[in-house]
């Protein structure tokens, strides 16, 4: 039995004729937290969408907890206890805060629900005051909290966050980082796409940097420190 929760193997994804991901491979161990960094247009979001099956890869495999999920439709992959917090928060403008949480809530694939409505409320007290507001009536930070809350009530083993702190004020950003740290401590593995090396270095065990659809760097936080120049060059415009 392997210790990998998520394994991406030789992923090739194309949009029409443009080749975005070239033989992309990386692993995420159970309970660990991983960052996925790269400049805009390097294929971070495409990597996530390929993992989830939203954009089907041309070739390659995605393994989750040892099982090849490459051929499954998106919804079945998510039922393996994966949660996705999309870029731009992905609110439904016709649902209220409470309805967002109500529609998403379900026990994990073993029938356990550690994360329920009350626990999300305790984690994000600010949402408590906005329960009957529509998702799009919230501030950016509140929307992000709701997007994370909505992912939590699905009781995931892996949470994938795309640009979770983008476009937020620094203080709110810190709040979100703290929440992600709490989630990690509760035993949920996280795969985080962001550009903030400092925050990610503290939060994640492992770091992958993508350049032009290929893995440019893959290593632990210490290795990241040793190769800081290489990584920063890859990330700076």
């Amino acid at each position: 039995m392997s210790n990998n929760l998520l394994e991406v193997k030789n992923l090739n994804t194309l949009y029409g004729r443009s080749h975005i991901l070239h033989d992309l491979s990386f692993k995420l161990e159970k309970g660990q937290s991983m960052s996925l960094m790269g400049r805009n247009g390097m294929g971070k979001t495409t990597t996530l969408k390929s993992i989830l099956g939203i954009v089907p890869p041309r070739s390659g495999h995605v393994y989750f907890d040892g099982e090849d999920i490459s051929k499954l439709p998106t919804w079945k992959r998510m039922r393996r206890d994966i949660a996705y917090v999309p870029e731009g928060r992905g609110m439904f403008h016709n649902l209220t805060v409470k309805e967002h949480l109500q529609m998403a809530a379900r026990p994990d694939s073993n029938g356990k629900s550690g994360w329920d409505f009350e626990r999300v409320m305790a984690t994000f007290p600010r949402l408590q005051e906005r329960l009957s507001n529509l998702g799009t009536e919230l501030s950016g930070g509140e929307q992000q909290m709701l997007a994370i809350g909505r992912a939590l009530v699905t009781n995931p083993r892996l949470m994938i966050l795309d640009e979770a702190t983008e476009g937020l004020a620094p203080l709110i950003r810190q709040d979100i980082w703290n929440v992600i740290a709490t989630i990690r401590e509760s035993g949920i593995s996280t795969l985080i796409v962001d550009k903030n090396i400092k925050a990610l270095k503290k939060l994640c065990d492992r770091h992958v940097v993508i350049v032009k659809g290929q893995v440019h760097f893959d290593g632990s936080s210490e290795e990241l420190d040793q190769n800081l120049d290489k990584v920063e060059t890859a990330l700076s415009v």
Binding site: W75, R79, M103
Partner: peptide, 17 residues
């Protein structure tokens, strides 16, 4: 609620499982 969400954005609803 799920039906309502899928009317608005089917892909996003599918990504919720």
């Amino acid at each position: 609620r799920i039906v309502e969400a899928s009317r608005l954005n089917p892909e996003r609803t599918e990504a919720l499982g």
